[in-house]
Write a protein that binds this DNA or RNA. Structure first.
Length: 852
RNA sequence: GCCCGGAUGGCGAAAUUGGCAGACGCAGCGGACUUAAAAUCCGCAGACCCUAACCGGUCGUGGGGGUUCAAGUCCCCCUCUGGGCACCA
């Protein structure tokens, strides 16, 4: 037994034993808290802020995390080695519903559950060797952090950016709380894919993100370092639309001819992007929930059930997540509206395809030039009147049922003959003159509803006083502490409302009895500015020091999943603009470059518990070591593409690292015996070919880190290098390769490996006799002379087909290449008896003979 | 319907500006070492045809057309697939 153990120990010394190596370095690194710390903002080094999205502390890292953080950590390590002042922090998005659900399930308080999970995940991060500076750790559920959420909320309240209003809100019965528009996916909750979101009327707190709609949209143009995909998604989400609002006059009952005068006349305001087609408007359509409809139904009892039916249809379609799919239905109200441009009297309808929450909830219907209006008019026999003539009188344009393209106006009175664009401008001016309309830009983006009727979140720092109404909590009374020991239930309404000690307070204004706001903030508030806090994580007087934030921002590289393309990334952009306007920071945008990595797939589906195809990082680490798991996640696919997880692949990477281990440890003594020597810059010696390969590899990886980020090919390049070194092993063993060359090869190999396999690199660095941290070692430089090939192979083609490969000196001119190709036997045989019409030579690339 | 990706061996994938398609790895096959196995090392490996074998040939990057001396790469049309948006007036 003892012998066996002894044997194992000896084997471990000889063989690559990731468990032992990683344990050793984990302890060393833990004992050196400065290792991954950034230097202060006064540092002379150029700064580099690399950030991966902070995880929700579920208690378990998954492979998506491993991939995300392996990418960021590789970048951070390389930047450290390149001499940058690197900020590479980590934290926890620690508020949110799962903690409450866990509380229900296990009877553990959310705080306890969260704190335990954080500890567990931190262990996993350290086990994986992630180079985070834990001194700047941010945990969003701590009062030291969330007090600043409250502080920001008060600032926004002062500026009118936070406000309360009654509104229809998205209610998830499962979460028993409100959701933001951004959190509703296909009519269902983003957390509960099978739970339909209900509409409820509630008084809610909102943040006026729409005040920044225009800037949020324009700012996208100034983010070339963001994926086009993300910018497009945000552009669509903001949904800017230029058009015109026009008032149709409501024809009063029984006063059809006279009408009352000007301003007193009731109006229906419609929004249109095609005011140029207004002479073709043959009806006005109202959303079923339009306020005017209520007055109509009040006067006409028969109308009410029909309108209710339309509302029900809309609701059903919304629940199904597909408003576009319902058949168009409508009902004529019997009322009429007057087109302000020509005085024409058109019927007013209520229709289920008109949405109350977009535009004005009312449209002018132009069946001849809008597909939806056409469909509706056809169904109900409403007049279809052409008012646009296509410019290109193409085949059968007139035969088309409707024409949505631009053209020239007809049947439009004084506007006839104008182009659509000209007409829009003129009609807008006329509307403004006549005070019955104006040019208008509207957005699809809505204000951000941040109230949540849940416990585990930031308390909204407001007080309700019977005398003074809504009163903000004074700044010096922050934070409003979230009480512990709150009973969590599945019923609706905020759990905080059932905690008298929390609810009952005094009014800051009058000192009388008052009730605290019991809603908490959406957790996306927490993640909207957390990355600023990292720069000054322990500041107790301000969210962060402005000067420090000015030094670090914007974030140079942000890395995370594309699923945050809208929610998190638009809220953080908004928050940044607010903070800028508060004078806290100087940057307009939080993130300079954004990288969205692909998903981790297994057996053709995204890894998920419900699919049962989850691979646990702990298992992988236990079986192959952290280095192998990390390196595989970089090797198996380029980081921006989906990664197909194959365990055999991890084993392969592990084998490779074992080869590196064997070679380096075997020749470490040779390397240690040598000094740095000019021999290593000569390639005319034994081992010169290896030096060439080495410098080519340095060049490739260095260049790749500059932005292309195809880490899979970088790992492949290191493998090629190791293969060549291994092929030269007989010479190494025979001592034919000079020791300084061996030293240079092994040292550099280990340096190149450092961003990808930090544990092994640290261990081998030490075995090579180095004392300092490999992270502090300068990144190797490629010598172009050494990297250059002396001889290259050039394909010789005939009529574009490969016939032979000829060897020539690197840098040979066209003449040399041409004659080399013509001298080749295979080429000679192929052109015998034929005429060479033309010879194309691309130096360094190819020779092609055009032969007849 | 609209807007983005993607499609390359049995599999994951490579291929700076158009210039040797399949680097690197996985799985596979053959061999060495071993009593044996594992581990490790060496070698083979797109498909098809020809050949006893060597040699050699043809085809080949989702499909069809085109530009070019030369196309995985550029242009046009189409198919499939992943994602986002969608009665947004």
């Amino acid at each position: 037994m003892a012998d066996e153990r002894e044997q194992l120990r000896n084997d471990a010394a000889a063989r690559y034993d990731p468990a032992a190596i990683e344990q050793k370095w984990m302890e060393r690194w833990a004992a050196d808290p400065k290792l991954y710390a950034a230097e202060p903002a006064t540092s002379k080094k150029p700064k580099y802020y690399v950030l991966e999205m902070l995880p929700y502390p579920s208690g378990q890292l998954h492979m998506g995390h491993v991939r995300n953080y392996a990418i960021g950590d590789a970048l951070a390590r390389q930047m450290w080695m390149r001499g940058y002042n690197v900020l590479h922090p980590m934290g926890w998005d620690a508020f949110g519903l799962p903690a409450e659900n866990a509380a229900l399930k296990n009877n553990t308080p959310p705080r306890e559950w969260t704190v335990q999970n954080i500890a567990a995940m931190k262990r996993q991060f350290n086990r994986l060797g992630m180079g985070f500076d834990w001194a700047t750790e941010v945990t969003t559920c701590m009062p030291e952090y969330y007090r600043w959420n409250q502080w920001f909320f008060l600032r926004m309240y002062e500026k009118g950016l936070a406000y309360r209003k009654k509104s229809k809100v998205n209610w998830c019965p499962e979460c028993a709380t409100v959701l933001a528009n951004e959190q509703v996916v296909d009519g269902c909750c983003w957390r509960h894919e099978d739970t339909k979101v209900e509409q409820r009327d509630l008084v809610q707190w909102f943040l006026r993100i729409t005040a920044y709609a225009e800037e949020l949209l324009e700012g996208l143009e100034k983010l070339p370092g963001w994926p086009e995909k993300v910018r497009t998604m945000q552009r669509n989400w903001i949904g800017r639309s230029e058009g015109t609002e026009v008032d149709f006059f409501l024809e009063e009952q029984g006063t059809r001819e006279r009408g009352s005068k000007g301003a007193e006349r009731q109006r229906i305001r419609v929004f249109t992007t095609r005011v140029d087609t207004i002479f073709g408007a043959t009806s006005v359509q109202l959303a079923p929930e339009h306020p005017l409809v209520a007055t109509f139904t009040a006067e006409d009892a028969a109308l009410k059930p029909k309108v209710d039916e339309l509302i029900a249809q809309q609701k059903a379609a919304r629940d199904a997540g597909d408003l576009g799919a319902i058949e168009k239905h409508g009902v004529a109200t019997g009322r009429f509206a007057i087109n302000p441009y020509n005085g024409e009297r058109v019927p007013i309808w209520v229709a289920n395809y008109i949405l109350m929450d977009y535009g004005t909830g009312a449209i002018m219907s132009v069946p001849a030039h809008d597909e939806r209006d056409f469909e509706f008019a056809t169904k109900y026999g409403i007049e279809i009147r052409r008012v646009i003539k296509p410019i290109s009188e193409g085949e059968g344009a007139d035969a088309l049922p409707f024409l949505s393209e631009d053209g020239v106006l007809v049947n439009s009175g004084e506007y006839d003959g104008l182009t659509c664009v000209q007409a829009q401008e003129k009609l807008q001016k006329a509307a403004a003159r006549g005070a019955f309309g104006e040019a208008k830009v509207i957005f699809r983006l809505k204000d951000w509803g941040v109230s949540r009727q849940r416990y585990w979140g930031t308390p909204i720092p407001m007080v309700h006083c019977e005398r003074d109404g809504v009163v903000p909590v004074p700044e010096d009374q922050l934070p409003v502490i979230l009480p512990d020991n709150v009973e969590i239930t599945q019923q609706g309404g905020s759990p905080l409302a059932r905690v008298p000690e929390f609810v009952n307070t005094t009014c800051p204004k009058c000192g009388g009895p008052a009730r605290r706001e019991t809603d908490t903030m959406d957790t996306f508030v927490d993640s909207s500015w957390y990355f600023y806090r990292y720069t000054d994580a322990h500041n107790s007087r301000a969210p962060f020091d402005s000067d420090i934030a000015k030094y670090w921002f914007p974030i140079d590289q942000y890395i995370g999943g594309v699923e945050h393309a809208i929610l998190h990334l638009i809220y953080s952009r908004f928050w940044t603009k607010v903070m800028r306007d508060l004078g806290l920071i100087r940057n307009d945008e939080p993130v300079d470059r954004l990288f969205t990595q692909g998903m981790v797939i297994k057996d053709g589906a995204k890894m998920s518990k419900s699919k049962g195809n989850v691979v646990s990082p702990d298992d992988m680490v236990a079986r192959y070591g952290a280095d192998s798991a990390r390196m595989y996640s970089l090797f198996a696919a380029p980081p921006d593409r989906d990664l197909d997880w194959q365990e055999d692949g991890v084993a392969g990477v592990s084998r490779f690292l074992g080869r590196v281990w064997r070679i380096v440890t075997k020749y470490a003594a040779v390397a240690r015996s040598a000094e740095a020597s000019p021999q290593v810059s000569s390639k005319t010696q034994v081992g010169g070919a290896l030096l060439r390969k080495l410098h080519q590899t340095i060049a490739k990886i260095t260049q790749d880190f500059e932005g292309r980020w195809h880490f899979n090919t970088d790992v492949a390049a290191i493998m090629e290098l190791v293969n060549e070194i291994q092929d030269a092993e007989p010479q190494m063993a025979a001592g034919e390769i000079p020791a300084p060359v061996v030293r240079e090869l092994l040292r550099t190999l280990v340096l190149l490996l450092a961003p990808f396999a930090p544990f092994l690199a640290a261990e081998l660095w030490e075995q090579l006799g180095e004392k300092g941290a490999i992270l502090r070692e300068p990144w190797p430089k490629s010598d172009p002379d050494l990297a250059k090939e002396d001889e290259i192979e050039i394909p010789a083609q005939i009529n574009g087909k490969l016939v032979a490969v000829v060897r020539v000196a690197a840098g040979s001119d066209s003449k040399t290449l041409e004659s080399a190709a013509l001298a080749d036997d295979k080429v000679k045989a192929r052109i015998a008896g034929k005429t060479v019409v033309k010879i194309i030579v691309v130096p360094g690339r190819t020779v092609n003979l055009v032969v007849k």
